[in-house]
């Protein structure tokens, strides 16, 4: 174990995989000479050369499509988006090409590609730079999605994503890159589809993913002061989804809050709630409550932005609601 930042853990995963497999390369804006817009690929140009660590032009549709085309021949591109906001320009290639290629070709053409970069809001970047893009991706059959919340998860999940034979989106967070934590040394892989219980408790379950894991833990801390023990289940992987882990926590606490950074309409939480009511209706003691970003484009003003984002306080109140307690 070594303590490192989330950023360095991602770097370690890429290096780990590039060392063992020549077919892995990294392409994206600013990834090479500039060391990455968020310095995730620091030192990699020097280590692997400009054929494997490649600065692209600002052409999201183009370089994402190029990476998909390369993957069609068995190469394993890591396609970095400076942020997933910009990947909206590339969604045609993600959804119409990468996600559907294997099916359209009757299994002839797998697309072993990773799309990675930060998703969701940072601080006061306003509407176009602050959105969670998970649902755009998981909506399409053929795509997988992981959302590491800690440095260890970042290393293990990114490495697993690179080895996976399908298109995998790895959604990180601008506000996570400096988070520090213990990371296993050496080769480290976390299989896709395994949720992680980040905190246990008997009274209520907060199910969440990505950066919101930290908000959930904060909320759980606040609740603990009132004698309420919240369980925090970090899905880590949205597709494949660890349904068993969700059903277990539902069975344990019978009360669930789903917390996510994205919008509520057709959000990830909407899917989870639907799944819970399909498969664990009888285990529920209260309707599941969702905490999401306000259903608006992200405002710039600091006070409005705070109101729009899910906060520990809103999570605390959602937990109280499913416990039939008055808002704090």
């Amino acid at each position: 174990m070594a303590e490192m930042t989330y950023r360095d853990a991602l770097n370690a995963a890429m290096c780990q995989e590039m060392d063992r497999d020549d077919s892995v390369f990294l392409m994206g804006e600013e990834v090479a000479e500039y060391d990455g817009a968020y310095k995730v690929s620091r030192g990699m140009l020097e280590r692997y050369g400009d054929q494997r660590v490649v600065d692209s032009p600002i052409s999201e549709l183009g370089f994402a499509g190029l990476c998909v085309g390369a993957a069609m021949t068995g190469l394993r591109p890591i396609c970095e988006f400076m942020t997933f906001n910009f990947s909206i320009l590339a969604l045609d290639q993600v959804i119409n090409s990468a996600a559907k290629m294997l099916y359209m070709s009757n299994g002839q053409i797998p697309v072993p590609i990773v799309f990675r970069g930060p998703t969701g809001a940072a601080l006061q970047l306003s509407a176009q730079h602050s959105q969670a893009c998970e649902t755009y991706y998981v909506h399409a059959p053929g795509v997988k999605l992981v959302t590491p919340a800690t440095p260890a998860d970042a290393k293990g999940l990114l490495a697993a994503a690179i080895r996976d034979d399908d298109p995998v989106a790895v959604m990180e967070g601008e506000l996570l890159y400096n988070v520090r934590g213990e990371v296993p040394d050496g080769e480290y892989i976390i299989p896709l589809g395994v949720a992680d219980l980040k905190r246990s408790g008997d009274d209520v379950s907060i199910v969440t993913h990505g950066k919101m894991v930290h908000v959930a833990l904060q909320a759980a801390g606040l609740l603990a002061r009132e004698g309420i023990e919240a369980e925090v289940l970090d899905l880590r992987s949205i597709r494949p989804l660890d349904v068993d882990a969700i059903l277990e926590t539902v069975a344990r606490t019978n009360r669930v809050v789903y917390l996510e950074e994205g919008w509520p309409f057709a959000g990830v939480g909407a899917q989870i709630v639907s799944m819970i009511q399909d498969e664990a209706f009888d285990d529920l003691d209260a309707p599941v409550v969702r905490v999401t970003q306000a259903d608006i484009p992200m405002p710039y003003a600091k006070n409005l932005e705070q109101l729009a984002k899910p906060s520990a306080k809103s999570v605390v109140n959602a937990c109280r609601q499913v416990l039939y307690l008055p808002a704090a």
Binding site: G65, L66, G69, A70, M72, T73, N96
Partner: peptide
């Protein structure tokens, strides 16, 4: 390497096939 239905969608893919050849 396919028949593709989105007008222009195959063009970046073609570049990627060329990339892979060169790689």
């Amino acid at each position: 390497m396919g028949g593709h239905g989105i007008v222009g969608g195959q063009i970046p893919l073609g570049a990627g096939l060329g990339w892979a050849i060169r790689y």
